[in-house]
């Protein structure tokens, strides 16, 4: 019974273990969602069935053990396992049905776009302020007084951060300012959270509208201070083309 059936079972389990535990630790990878793992396993199982039914012989070799198992031939430990499977299957179906019909206690999902497109007038602006040590230091000073309460030491962990959702951006994270142009930061700082389009959920963010309290020149200096303090470089047109 083992040979033909055990191979797809072992293959499926190995693929599962690979997707669940190995993929997340690969460089530049992340844990896969359960739905994606399920999809991959379904593909593996479908492929196994297709492979096993390519010829009449292999089809019989694949299905005969299953048929013998379901009809109770053999008895012994397999007989006990048969009753277990026959009892578990309806329970599994009932559990799935309950899960799909019962109302959820989870709040509605939020599909927030973290970096929505800026208005056209902010696209491609270049920083007009010379990148001198003095200007960078001045920008860092403004950052310390205006931005650090939420964004902390460029890591998003300021003393005012805990109550806000979404949390303040961590500028040291390579997925924040390192993948954005300076013009994008200029828009976000100048117009604040309320300047976001609907997909950015402007009603939730606590980012102030700094144009009411800072000049454009000071905002550009803050941007220089942010990149320097976080050890990041802005994305440029050359890199994005």
């Amino acid at each position: 019974m083992g040979g033909v059936l055990i191979r797809p079972v072992i293959l499926t389990i190995c693929i599962y273990l690979f997707l669940k535990f190995i993929v997340p630790i690969l460089p530049h990878s992340a844990p896969l969602p359960s739905s994606l793992i399920f999809l991959y396993l379904m593909l593996v199982m479908s492929g196994s069935v297709l492979f096993a039914t390519l010829s009449g012989e292999s089809k019989d070799a694949f299905f005969q053990p299953i048929l013998r198992f379901l009809t109770g031939e053999g008895g012994g430990a397999l007989g006990s396992a048969r009753y277990l499977v026959l009892a578990l299957f309806p329970l599994l179906v009932g559990w799935q049905t309950y899960g799909s019909t019962a109302s959820s206690d989870a709040p509605p999902g939020e599909n927030r776009t973290i970096h929505p497109a800026p208005p056209g007038e902010y696209t491609g602006l270049s920083n007009p302020v010379p990148k001198t040590p003095e200007n960078i230091m001045y920008g860092k000073g403004l950052y310390a007084s205006r931005c650090a309460p939420c964004h902390g030491n460029f890591d998003g962990k300021g003393f005012a951060a805990p109550g806000f959702t979404p949390p303040p951006a961590n500028f040291k994270d390579p997925t924040t300012i390192a993948m954005l142009q300076e013009s994008y930061l200029f828009w976000r700082i100048k117009k604040g959270g309320v300047g976001l389009p609907v997909e950015g959920m402007p009603w939730k963010t606590a980012m102030p509208r700094w144009e009411l309290e800072m000049s454009d020149e000071d905002i550009w200096k803050v941007i220089m201070g942010e990149y320097d303090g976080a050890g990041q470089k802005p994305r440029t047109w050359d890199e994005s083309e």
Partner: peptide
């Protein structure tokens, strides 16, 4: 959340 202040695009 801040007193329903006006938003630029919404």
């Amino acid at each position: 959340f801040a007193h329903g202040q006006p938003m630029a695009q919404v």
